[in-house]
Structure formats: structure tokens, C-alpha cells
Amino acid sequence: MDGTVKLRIGHLYPDLLNLYGDRGNVQCMVMRCVWRGIDVETKEYNQGDKIDFSSLDILLLGGGSDREQRIVGSELRKIREDFHSYVEDGGTVLAVCGGYQLLGHYYEIEGERIEGLSLVDLYTVQKAPRLISNIVLKNEELPFEITGFENHGGRTFIGKNRPFGKVLYGFGNNGEDQEEGVLYKNVTGTYLHGPLLPKNPHVCDRLLRSALERKYGITQLEALDDTQEKEANRYIVNRFCKNKKSTKR
């Protein structure tokens, strides 16, 4: 691939939203670019930093505790319009756990509403118990299952939006509708950590491809040797989906 191809990844508030090995998602995207000869630059944005959305190709928003999420929410609301334009223009976003909840209208916790960014039509309500489990999803557009781990008190409802996947094992958005995450334009919202991308190279490549297409019109990615990634993924699928009840309730 031509060396002038370059992606810029923005990691939002890594010192606040850094639960569950989120930096593994960044590492995964970076390496899968490097292995293909795609230039890649990552930039961390912390509290008070100005975010120039027009310079970014992929945005990553991780998970944090409720308190940290509150701080991030108030920071992001200040630049909500820029973020909104980025999303509507097809900018690529991966939002995990707390970051996923922030995409929506609100997160209701003990009667109080933490305002979200309303970038995607969804909302979240906290409820006991926390949903903690290994999780396996199926998305028909992807060649094999999506695997990860979920740990969330929020129940998310995505209305008419497309989910990230159908739940084969685990709880998903709310433990009721067997759906997990959300897909909206080039935004992926999900509760899956673990982190998400290393064991799901197809999801990682999907994010990279959408960013490359928007920037360069590139729709094909060079294939990589994903034997080890597939093995690790397959192990989870076999362990939790063979001869077991389809969902965890």
C-alpha cells in the first residue's frame, strides 16, 4: 500500500476512561495498520485539550467508573456540535462501555439523569444486578463471531437502530432483547471489552476500512495472517456456545 496513506486515531480521555484494557484496542488498530504499511498516528486527548475533529479519522472512547464518566460527559458536551458533525459526516467511532452509554440521550442512575451527547438515538437506565459475563455475538456481515467480556450496570435500549450483533451467549444491551451494541453510520457502540479488537480482527479491520474509505476511497484491505486471533476467538465460541443454552438469563 502507498506510504502516503495515513490514519489518525484520537483516544479520548485515556486517563479517565481506561477500564478493561482499552488501550489494547488502540494497540490493535495501530499494529494492523503498521503490518500493512499504513502510516498511523495516535493522539491522546485529556481534560482541557482541544479536539480538532477534522484532523481525526478514528475516535476511540473507552469505559470508566460512573464518576469519571460524568466528568467526560460534561467535557464532551462542550464540543458536542463538532462531534455530531464528525459522526454525521461518516467519521469512524468506537465507543466501549461507558463511552457507548455517552453516545445516547442519557444514562439514568438512581433517579438522576446524566445527560449524554445524543449522537445516536439510544438511552441507558441503570439496574441491579450488574451484567457480568463472557459474551459471544453474531453479526451476519462478519465472517465469524465476535467475542469479549461485558460488565455493566446500565441497560441500554437502541430503539430502531441496528445492533452490533445478536447475542449467542451473555447478556447484551439489556439482557432482554438478545441484542448487543449499536451500529449507526460509522459509529460502533458496544459493551464488549476484553479488549474488543485483538480477538476480533474482523471488527478492527471494519473500523480501519471505514476510515480509509472516507478518507481515500480505499475499500480493500491487505489480508493478514490472523491464525492466532482466530484461534483465541474460536476458543471462546467453543467454550460458551457448544451445547449450552443460547443466552444467559
Binding site: 478493561y20 484494557g21 482499552d22 457480568i132 467480556f149 471489552h193
Partner: peptide, 9 residues
């Protein structure tokens, strides 16, 4: 702990 995501930290 059934969640091993911390390995990435």
C-alpha cells in the same frame, strides 16, 4: 476473576 482484560494493562 473471569475477566482477563487487565492483561492489556
Amino acid at each position: 476473576g473471569t475477566d482477563i482484560s487487565w492483561l492489556w494493562d
